[in-house]
Simulated scan of single mutants.
Amino acid sequence: MLDALDYVRFGLTLFSILDPFAAIPLFLLLTDSRSAQQRSATARTAALAVFVTLVVAGFSGDLILRLLGASLPAFQVGGGIVLFLMALSMINAQLSPQQQTPEEASEASDRSAVGVVPIAMPLLVGPGSISATIIYIERGTGWQHKGLSVAILALICLGIWVVLKLAQPIGDRLGRTGLNILNRIFGLLLAAVAVQIFANGLRGLFPALG
Rank of each mutant, 00 (worst) to 15 (best):
S33R: 14
R9T: 15
S35V: 03
N183G: 13
V55W: 10
V125R: 02
R111S: 15
L190W: 02
D32E: 15
V150Q: 04
G78S: 00
V8H: 07
I170F: 00
I134K: 02
G159M: 06
W161N: 11
F51R: 02
S149M: 15
F15M: 10
A93Q: 09
L95G: 05
F84N: 03
Q37L: 12
A43V: 07
L124M: 02
F21C: 01
E103T: 05
F75I: 08
L155W: 11
G140A: 15
Q196K: 12
A120Q: 05
L123H: 11
L158A: 15
H145K: 09
M86N: 14
A57P: 00
F198M: 09
P25D: 00
L88W: 01
S16R: 02
L63C: 07
G69I: 06
P102H: 10
F10P: 03
K146I: 11
R44A: 14
Q37G: 08
E104K: 06
D172K: 14
M121W: 08
Q144N: 13
I152D: 05
I24H: 00
N180R: 11
S106T: 13
P25E: 00
I24N: 01
G61D: 07
A132F: 09
L95K: 07
R173Q: 12
I119K: 00
L18H: 05
L5T: 13
A46C: 06
L166F: 07
I24P: 00
L54P: 15
A132T: 08
V195H: 01
A194H: 00
M86C: 12
F59Q: 04
A113H: 11
L123K: 10
V55L: 14
A43W: 06
P73Q: 14
A4V: 15
R44E: 12
D172L: 13
A47F: 05
A154M: 13
G171W: 05
L18A: 04
S35L: 09
S131Y: 01
L95D: 11
V82F: 07
V114F: 01
L18D: 01
N200I: 03
E138V: 10
G79S: 03
P97H: 07
V56M: 09
S109D: 09
A192G: 13
L30M: 07
L18Q: 04
N183L: 09
R39L: 13
A192R: 09
L123F: 11
P118L: 00
T141L: 05
L67I: 06
G175L: 13
V117T: 10
D19K: 08
L28Y: 07
D19Y: 02
D19M: 03
Q100T: 12
V163P: 02
Q99K: 14
G11D: 06
Q37H: 11
